[in-house]
């Protein structure tokens, strides 16, 4: 279980996250929606440890993460699918996946590699090609699989539908629901609010670095303000 309490973070002198708190339990999806620049990506980066925090606490399964290095957080079970996929474009697909298993034992890596190839056969077909040669959707699948190679208990996903065709978006979200069934705790950041809310158990709306509204996914789908601002209809 991931829990964030009263978190603040700054870029230089400018505070960009204020008093952010959230909680996500195993087998649940928490959707974070909000406009560009609302602080969603910064929040995920702060949780994964690549963005420093100024106050507040982050705990994973009850253990504080504040002083734990980003790379060590992966070992503790926290994985992130970064915005823009960020695959290792000049390396093969298989190497990308193997690197995803950096913190795992060799036997786990082999099993997880098998699982990734079975779930997304296209990755197996192209396993020796450079990741940079994949289409956007395939790169997204690869980025998700790479994050799963570390056997996380919590996964942070930043805009997994960005730049994808509607058909691919369906595939990606089907994959996310599969992860939920496997018992992962998922934090899902999305511009595509309607799809995100439809699969989310809980949801929060971010505006200018704060969480301004929370509820279940269903509640927020019905919320008048959310409808107007983020779902594009009154």
């Amino acid at each position: 279980m991931l829990e964030v309490k009263d978190l603040a973070s700054r870029y230089g002198r400018i505070e960009v996250l204020h008093d952010v708190s959230l909680k996500v339990e195993p087998g649940k999806i928490l959707a974070l929606i909000g406009a560009n620049g609302a602080g969603k990506t910064t929040l995920l980066k702060a949780i994964s440890g690549v963005q420093p925090i100024s106050t507040g606490t982050i705990t994973l399964d009850g253990k504080p993460l504040n002083k734990v290095q980003a790379s060590e957080r992966v070992k503790r079970g926290l994985a992130q699918v970064p915005e823009g996929r960020q695959v290792f474009g000049g390396m093969s697909i298989e190497d990308n996946l193997l690197l995803g298993g950096w913190t795992s034992s060799a036997t786990n890596v082999q099993a997880d590699l098998q699982f990734a190839y079975e779930t997304f056969p296209v990755l197996f077909e192209k396993k020796d090609l450079l990741a940079g040669s994949l289409s956007g959707g395939q790169q997204q699948m690869l980025a998700i699989c790479r994050a799963l190679m570390s056997r996380p208990s919590v996964i942070l996903m930043d805009e997994p539908s960005m730049g994808l065709s509607p058909l691919l978006i369906d595939q990606v979200f089907a994959a996310i629901e599969l992860l939920k069934k496997k018992g992962l705790a998922i934090v899902l950041v999305e511009q595509n609010a309607s799809v995100a809310l439809s699969i989310a158990d809980d949801a929060s709306v971010m505006e200018t670095g704060r969480i301004v509204l929370r509820g279940t996914g269903k509640e927020l789908q019905q919320d008048q303000r959310v409808k107007e601002l983020y779902l594009g209809h009154a």
């Binding site: 994964s48 690549v50 290095q69 980003a70 790379s71 060590e72 992966v74 070992k75 994985a79 992130q80 970064p82 960020q86 695959v87 290792f88 474009g89 000049g90 390396m91 190497d95 193997l98 690197l99 995803g100 950096w102 913190t103 790479r146 994050a147 190679m149 570390s150």
Partner: peptide
């Protein structure tokens, strides 16, 4: 070797390398 690939990974994308758990 995985460590050798890790060096290559860091050269390509330091953020992604950190996020897979590589201590840069």
């Amino acid at each position: 070797t995985l460590i050798g690939k890790g060096i290559l990974a860091i050269s390509q994308n330091q953020l992604a390398a950190t996020l897979v758990g590589i201590n840069v």
